[in-house]
């Protein structure tokens, strides 16, 4: 079983087991997102970026919180893996809420600068 398969198995097990409901604070999520350096690879607006590999956009993330938390704990590719002692579950939930609060994508057809 390779790394991706292992991650997938953990994700499925976690989803099957369900997860606790979190009362999330997007304002605190923004604070942590900036203070703990998530913005460094993924951008302050969640627009994505790059380290050794492209870092995906996170604004309006489609990832459920449970999956989001597992990705943070395991770190795909070169993404750092953040343990509970440095990034508590509550902060993870708050970051997730912050990302959902960001404006995200816009339609491109009415943006002349992107249709040059």
């Amino acid at each position: 079983m390779n790394g991706f398969s292992r991650l997938l198995a953990v994700l499925l097990l976690t989803l099957a087991a369900g997860h606790p409901a979190w009362s999330a604070d997007a304002a605190n999520g923004k604070r942590v997102y900036l203070a703990d350096g998530c913005f460094a690879c993924h951008g302050r607006a969640g627009q994505g970026g790059a380290m050794n590999y492209p870092a995906p956009p996170l604004a309006q993330t489609k990832l459920p919180l449970a999956v989001f938390r597992i990705i943070l704990r395991t770190g795909p590719k070169d993404m750092p893996a953040y343990a509970e002692n440095v990034l508590p579950d509550q902060d993870v939930a708050d970051i997730h809420a912050f990302l959902l609060s960001l404006p995200g994508r816009r339609p491109t057809q009415d943006m002349p600068l992107l249709n040059q």
Binding site: A45, G46, Q47, A59, R105, R106, T108, L113, L114, Q116
Partner: peptide
């Protein structure tokens, strides 16, 4: 690419996508 570039279009500090498009 165009869709990715729209995220944070009006943000400050300025997104690198917006800067390059401008």
């Amino acid at each position: 690419a165009k869709s990715d570039a729209t995220i944070g279009w009006d943000a400050s500090p300025i997104s690198t996508a917006r800067m390059c498009a401008e």
